[in-house]
Amino acid sequence: MISAKKLITMARRWQKVTNIKRKRITFPRSTGKGHFVMYTADQRRFVLPLEYLNKEIFKELFRMAEEVFGLPRNGPIKLPCDAASMEYVIAMIQHNIEQNLEKALAIAIETGCCPSCSYGAPDPPNQQTLICSF
């Protein structure tokens, strides 16, 4: 037989453990040192190195985000393009594309590569051709 006293201490211990777990669940998602976070219009979360903020294409994407959504207030930064375009942008940066191409890419995104965007560019589907033209 376990004594009542032992039961209580066991229960307390469990309570502590579950409390810790619960806290872990509610903790904000951690971001690695030297990184920032942004979400695409289709709610995908991207963790990117701070150096990307100096890239012309990100400056352009931020400018577009401000025009579409206004400056972010209470939440994280959201960009008006979908995850596929973002992955393409990242691949381009990793392959060191030239600056004027970066600008062209930003224009391509702006003029309608973003089928899942809530603001709905009128004629989206020529993304493929634009990608091919690089």
Partner: peptide, 15 residues
Amino acid sequence: REMRYSDLKKIDRGV
């Protein structure tokens, strides 16, 4: 913005 304070301080004016 889901990032570290020490990293936020590194971001340049403008962006």
